[in-house]
Lab assay of single mutants.
Amino acid sequence: TEEVEKIVRELQKRGVSQEEIQRILKRNGIDPRDVEHVVRRLR
């Protein structure tokens, strides 16, 4: 989703690792598959 993408991009800008990003998003109830998808697209 748009929202997830924004969050991921923001965290990446701050130098947060992929694993940490995924952990944060999972904690916020976001589907890990969505996270994977977004992270892969932004690489």
Results as ranks from 00 to 15, higher is better:
residue 37 H to S: 13
residue 3 E to I: 11
residue 31 D to H: 06
residue 14 R to W: 11
residue 14 R to V: 05
residue 27 R to K: 09
residue 22 Q to I: 15
residue 20 E to H: 06
residue 26 K to S: 12
residue 17 S to N: 07
residue 26 K to T: 13
residue 10 E to M: 13
residue 38 V to W: 08
residue 43 R to N: 13
residue 32 P to V: 05
residue 11 L to R: 00
residue 2 E to S: 10
residue 10 E to V: 11
residue 32 P to G: 04
residue 19 E to R: 11
residue 23 R to E: 09
residue 10 E to W: 13
residue 38 V to I: 14
residue 17 S to P: 08
residue 29 G to M: 03
residue 41 R to M: 13
residue 12 Q to R: 11
residue 15 G to Y: 04
residue 17 S to V: 04
residue 17 S to G: 07
residue 10 E to P: 01
residue 35 V to L: 06
residue 28 N to V: 13
residue 14 R to F: 10
residue 5 E to V: 10
residue 9 R to W: 06
residue 31 D to T: 04
residue 33 R to K: 12
residue 4 V to Q: 02
residue 21 I to W: 09
residue 31 D to Y: 02
residue 12 Q to Y: 15
residue 5 E to A: 08
residue 34 D to H: 10
residue 34 D to V: 15
residue 11 L to V: 00
residue 30 I to G: 01
residue 30 I to R: 02
residue 7 I to W: 12
residue 21 I to P: 00
residue 8 V to A: 10
residue 37 H to W: 13
residue 34 D to R: 08
residue 15 G to E: 02
residue 21 I to S: 00
residue 28 N to I: 14
residue 5 E to Q: 04
residue 23 R to G: 05
residue 9 R to A: 05
residue 19 E to S: 11
residue 38 V to H: 02
residue 3 E to F: 13
residue 19 E to M: 11
residue 9 R to N: 02
residue 26 K to C: 15
residue 16 V to R: 07
residue 35 V to M: 04
residue 23 R to P: 00
residue 13 K to F: 08
residue 30 I to A: 05
residue 34 D to F: 13
residue 6 K to C: 15
residue 11 L to C: 13
residue 39 V to Y: 07
residue 7 I to D: 01
residue 32 P to D: 07
residue 42 L to I: 13
residue 27 R to P: 01
residue 4 V to G: 01
residue 29 G to I: 02
residue 17 S to Y: 02
residue 3 E to R: 09
residue 40 R to G: 10
residue 28 N to Y: 14
residue 6 K to Y: 08
residue 4 V to S: 02
residue 33 R to T: 06
residue 17 S to M: 04
residue 10 E to N: 08
residue 34 D to W: 13
residue 41 R to Q: 07
residue 22 Q to S: 11
residue 6 K to E: 06
residue 24 I to K: 02
residue 10 E to K: 11
residue 2 E to K: 11
residue 42 L to W: 02
residue 22 Q to V: 15
residue 7 I to S: 03
residue 38 V to S: 01
residue 41 R to F: 09
residue 38 V to L: 11
residue 36 E to M: 08
residue 21 I to V: 04
residue 16 V to E: 04
residue 7 I to A: 09
residue 37 H to N: 13
residue 24 I to Y: 10
residue 16 V to H: 11
residue 42 L to F: 03
residue 2 E to N: 09
residue 37 H to A: 15
residue 16 V to L: 13
residue 5 E to D: 05
residue 20 E to N: 08
residue 22 Q to L: 14
residue 42 L to K: 04
residue 43 R to F: 15
residue 6 K to Q: 09
residue 10 E to R: 11
residue 22 Q to F: 15
residue 30 I to W: 13
residue 9 R to Y: 06
residue 5 E to Y: 14
residue 12 Q to W: 15
residue 10 E to L: 13
residue 35 V to R: 01
residue 30 I to L: 07
residue 17 S to E: 04
residue 7 I to H: 04
residue 33 R to G: 05
residue 20 E to G: 06
residue 6 K to A: 09
residue 7 I to Y: 10
residue 34 D to P: 01
residue 7 I to T: 05
residue 9 R to M: 07
residue 36 E to W: 11
residue 32 P to F: 05
residue 31 D to L: 03
residue 13 K to V: 06
residue 12 Q to G: 04
residue 3 E to T: 10
residue 8 V to C: 12
residue 4 V to A: 04
residue 18 Q to K: 11
residue 13 K to M: 11
residue 27 R to V: 07
residue 8 V to L: 07
residue 12 Q to K: 08
residue 16 V to G: 01
residue 14 R to L: 11
residue 16 V to Q: 03
residue 39 V to G: 02
residue 32 P to Y: 04
residue 16 V to N: 04
residue 8 V to Y: 12
residue 22 Q to E: 10
residue 14 R to M: 10
residue 6 K to V: 06
residue 2 E to L: 10
residue 12 Q to E: 03
residue 6 K to D: 05
residue 4 V to P: 01
residue 30 I to P: 01
residue 12 Q to F: 15
residue 26 K to I: 14
residue 13 K to C: 14
residue 5 E to T: 06
residue 4 V to I: 13
residue 9 R to T: 04
residue 29 G to R: 02
residue 13 K to G: 07
residue 33 R to L: 09
residue 39 V to I: 15
residue 11 L to A: 03
residue 8 V to E: 00
residue 9 R to G: 02
residue 20 E to K: 07
residue 41 R to S: 06
residue 8 V to R: 01
residue 39 V to N: 03
residue 43 R to K: 09
residue 31 D to F: 02
residue 39 V to K: 03
residue 8 V to I: 12
residue 1 T to F: 13
residue 2 E to M: 10
residue 24 I to V: 06
residue 38 V to F: 04
residue 18 Q to Y: 15
residue 12 Q to A: 12
residue 16 V to C: 15
residue 12 Q to M: 15
residue 33 R to D: 08
residue 8 V to F: 12
residue 38 V to Q: 01
residue 24 I to H: 05
residue 25 L to F: 02
residue 10 E to G: 09
residue 20 E to Y: 08
residue 9 R to D: 03
residue 18 Q to S: 11
residue 34 D to A: 10
residue 36 E to N: 03
residue 1 T to I: 14
residue 1 T to A: 10
residue 13 K to W: 08
residue 20 E to M: 10
residue 30 I to H: 09
residue 1 T to K: 08
residue 18 Q to T: 14
residue 31 D to M: 03
residue 27 R to S: 09
residue 41 R to I: 07
residue 27 R to Q: 08
residue 8 V to Q: 00
residue 2 E to F: 12
residue 27 R to L: 11
residue 19 E to Q: 11
residue 33 R to P: 02
residue 36 E to V: 05
residue 21 I to H: 00
residue 25 L to M: 07
residue 29 G to C: 10
residue 7 I to E: 03
residue 32 P to W: 08
residue 1 T to W: 13
residue 41 R to T: 04
residue 24 I to E: 04
residue 33 R to W: 06
residue 23 R to V: 08
residue 6 K to M: 09
residue 3 E to G: 06
residue 7 I to L: 12
residue 10 E to F: 13
residue 13 K to A: 10
residue 28 N to M: 14
residue 32 P to M: 05
residue 25 L to A: 02
residue 14 R to H: 07
residue 14 R to A: 09
residue 23 R to F: 08
residue 27 R to Y: 08
residue 17 S to R: 06
residue 33 R to F: 05
residue 16 V to I: 11
residue 9 R to E: 03
residue 34 D to M: 14
residue 5 E to W: 15
residue 34 D to G: 03
residue 32 P to N: 03
residue 30 I to Y: 14
residue 32 P to I: 06
residue 35 V to E: 01
residue 1 T to R: 10
residue 31 D to P: 06
residue 30 I to E: 01
residue 1 T to M: 13
residue 17 S to H: 06
residue 5 E to K: 04
residue 41 R to Y: 07
residue 9 R to V: 05
residue 26 K to F: 14
residue 11 L to S: 00
residue 39 V to L: 15
residue 34 D to Q: 12
residue 19 E to W: 13
residue 24 I to D: 00
residue 25 L to H: 00
